[in-house]
């Protein structure tokens, strides 16, 4: 199992009491499986993603990434785990303004100690595979459309060949048609790259491409509904 969350509880301080964001959440996602999590704002979707990304440590429960227990790791090891095993597709594209599309990917490789020049052609190929061609690989974020930025965002998340792909509201800044294209692209790359993909979204119109749809309500993952 690439991603396993078991009985995860996460609470936040809220004045004198604590607010429960995740209430005994369990989730298993296999390689090549595209799981969508829907739910209203404040239901705990983002907390689920943050815990799965090892950016938050739960109060209790286990988080296993490719069989590795995140709770057993220190900060440095968790950072390395995110770098090597987890890809994050951010809600907004969150691209670095100073870098071209190719350089966004090269920067990820540089974090891993790879020489940026050595990975340039692989970066261009990956960008082409997500639909960024015709010289757009060498444009900066402000020179790309919203959909194109999101494709770069996806390619960046994939570039380190992660086993887990976490996707945060990928269509929130896109119109329906472009949103559909992006979700379709995520479904395709999940199968092609064999990632365990979890996409949180509030947009129920974009769920047809998912293998499985779960609903988050008040910090609990509800029964799966048919995709």
């Amino acid at each position: 199992m690439s991603l396993l969350l078991s009985e995860v509880v996460l609470t936040y301080p809220d004045g004198d009491r604590r607010l429960t964001a995740l209430d005994g959440v369990s989730l298993e996602v296999a390689p090549g499986e595209f799981t969508a999590v829907v739910g209203p704002s404040g239901s705990g979707k983002s907390s689920l993603l943050a815990v799965a990304a090892t950016l938050l440590t739960p109060d209790s429960g286990r988080v296993l990434i490719g069989g590795q227990d995140a709770a057993a790791l220190n900060d440095k090891q968790r950072t390395a785990l995110r770098r090597d095993r987890i890809g994050i597709v951010f809600q907004q594209s969150n691209l670095l303004a100073s870098l071209t599309a190719v350089e966004q990917l090269q920067a990820v490789a540089h974090l891993r100690g790879e020489k940026p020049r050595a990975v340039a052609s692989r970066a261009e190929s990956l960008l082409a595979s997500v639909g960024l061609t015709d010289g757009k690989q060498h444009r900066r974020p402000h020179q790309l459309s919203g959909g194109e930025r999101q494709r770069v965002n996806i390619a960046r998340a994939l570039f380190a060949e992660p086993s887990v792909l976490l996707v945060d509201e990928p269509t929130s800044a896109l119109d329906h048609e472009r949103g559909e294209q992006i979700v379709g692209l995520l479904a395709r790359i999940t199968r092609e790259h064999g990632t365990a993909t979890v996409m949180v979204t509030h947009d129920k119109a974009q769920l047809t491409a998912a293998d499985r749809v779960l609903e988050m309500v008040d910090g609990r993952l509800a029964e799966a509904v048919a995709a």
Partner: peptide, 11 residues
């Protein structure tokens, strides 16, 4: 930008 880089694995 720093938050993004940290999130994707920069120490």
């Amino acid at each position: 930008d720093i938050a993004v880089l940290k999130a994707v694995g920069a120490s």
